[in-house]
Design a protein around this nucleic acid. Structure first.
Length: 257
DNA sequence: ATGGTCGGGCTCCGA
């Protein structure tokens, strides 16, 4: 079972790329972020034609997440539990076959310090609280998405250039480690302990050409999913297409239960 | 050298 995550940076602007990538990569499950549209505007027909079911949690202009799957999408949860007053569409969770999956768009948090950074850290605390409950299910769970955190210096093209950024702050990294220490496996780092595995390159300054990237898109696996991990990687191809998203897809292969 | 480029939806915000 191939499960991929991709921040598409507007699903309508990226629909041609999304269709081309789904045909080429053929993931069983695709976790999408930054749809930037309400559910009614999601380009559903083009994707259903390829044989995918769709569950969305959209929002106008900002945020928006989705789960695409070749199999039925069941028991959908929209929104990260823990704060009913939070209106931002950054979390959707569902069961596909034997696996529980979530598509996560974690707050960016810039500029820091400030209210946006406070919101990011509070959101990460809520995520950790909810993730603890998912581990208690003792089933294969895959939490994929744009975490807006570079876990270590190895995940940053230049630590000095990024020093003031919310994505590399000690508090952001500590919150990430809280998740990992619960028992989640960082699939890409597990499979590639020493490789550069960037998933994002800023539009500014030709960052992709120079491979000045960041690893901020992650797939966290519960122990029952990690037991079945066969492969993990980054598909850099879509980042090289014309008018690309600033992110490129990351994926895992999980052996059937 | 705090610029630069996108997408959305309207003169600027978020990333």
């Amino acid at each position: 079972m191939k499960i991929a995550t991709w921040n598409v940076n507007s699903v309508r602007a990226r629909a041609p790329h999304l269709v081309a990538w789904l045909k080429q990569a053929s993931p069983d499950v695709a976790l999408l972020q930054e749809l930037k549209c309400v559910d009614a505007e999601f380009p559903a027909m083009e994707i259903e034609t390829l044989g995918y079911n769709i569950a969305t949690h959209g929002q106008k202009t900002y945020n928006g997440v989705a789960i695409l799957a070749k199999g039925p999408i069941e028991d959908v949860v929209r929104g990260l539990p823990g704060d009913p007053s939070d209106e931002q569409s950054r979390y959707i969770e569902a069961t596909v076959g034997t696996v529980r999956v979530a598509s996560i768009y974690l707050p960016n948090g810039n500029p820091q310090p400030g209210p946006k950074f406070d919101y990011k850290l509070a959101w990460m605390t809520r995520l950790a609280d909810h993730a603890r409950g998912l581990l208690a299910l003792e089933m294969p769970v895959v939490l994929g998405g744009d975490y807006n955190v570079c876990p270590t210096g190895a995940d940053v093209w230049d630590e000095k250039a990024m020093a003031g950024d919310a994505l590399v702050q000690p508090q952001s990294r500590a919150a990430w480690r809280t998740l990992v220490h619960q028992g989640w496996t960082d699939a890409l780092r597990q499979r590639h302990p020493n490789a550069r595995m960037f998933t994002y390159w800023d539009y500014f300054r030709d960052r992709f050409t120079h491979d000045h990237g960041l690893r901020i898109d992650h797939l966290l696996l519960s122990p029952q999913a990690a037991d079945r991990l066969e492969d993990a990687g980054v598909d850099r191809t879509p980042r090289g297409w014309e008018k690309p998203s600033d992110h490129t897809p990351a994926f895992v292969e999980i052996r059937a239960a």
